[in-house]
């Protein structure tokens, strides 16, 4: 009746769920070499794994455990601590609306209300097509351009309610476009926002 060490179960590396190819595995393992101990790379590994399908499934956590040589329980505990890691399947474009002080003072509430209306969902919910969800996020460190939202780490600043609507429409129109490019476009003012 000894404790079962699931981290060392070799059959988990190639579970269907994770479908990790050799190149990805090599990349993740190489991250460990930057740190004195492998687990230093854990947060970077989890970010990388989350990029693949938008959240971290148990098989992702087990894979991370194997690579960093710690227990799956420990990885799960670490992943659950941080706000950016999603442990449940997420919408394709989770919209994070800053709810902290400067955005709040500069129209953040109105922005949230617009988002709710435009998307027909509340905080913590996703649209039925699985495309968008709404979350409150804490201060994004862009207080001088409030109010701000972020989608997959790309910041959309000085956001008026109508500009938010435009962004949603543009993403819907071309789901594969680069969010980074879209955000940059807004920042450099290449297109006039209504």
């Amino acid at each position: 009746m000894n404790g079962a060490q699931t981290a060392s179960d070799p059959s988990l590396a190639g579970t269907d769920d994770s479908k990790v190819d050799r190149a990805c595995l090599a990349e993740l393992s190489s991250l460990c070499e930057r740190y004195p101990i492998p687990r230093g790379a854990l947060l970077l590994i989890l970010h990388r794994l989350q990029e693949r399908r938008g959240h971290l499934a148990p098989s992702d956590l087990k894979l991370a455990a194997q690579i960093t040589t710690i227990s799956p329980a420990e990885v799960y505990s670490v992943a659950s601590f941080y706000s950016m890691f999603r442990l449940q399947p997420a919408a394709r474009f989770p919209i994070g609306i800053c709810r902290n002080i400067s955005c709040w003072l500069c129209g953040g509430q109105k922005l949230l209300d617009t988002a709710r209306e435009k998307l027909g969902i509340d905080l913590g919910e996703a649209t039925t097509d699985g495309l968008f969800s709404l979350e409150s996020v804490e201060c994004l460190g862009s207080c001088d351009t409030a109010p701000v939202i972020e989608i997959h780490g790309e910041y959309f600043e000085h956001l008026t309610p109508s500009a938010l609507g435009t962004i949603v429409d543009r993403i819907r129109a071309d789901k594969d476009q680069s969010l980074q490019a879209l955000a940059l476009e807004r920042r450099t003012g290449a297109r006039k926002e209504p």
């Binding site: 000894n2 404790g3 329980a73 420990e74 799960y76 505990s77 659950s80 601590f81 941080y82």
Partner: peptide, 15 residues
């Protein structure tokens, strides 16, 4: 569970 039983099966979830 981690240190004595050598079976790290309990964890703190969340924050």
């Amino acid at each position: 569970m981690d240190e004595y039983a050598k079976s790290p099966s309990l964890l703190v979830k969340g924050r």
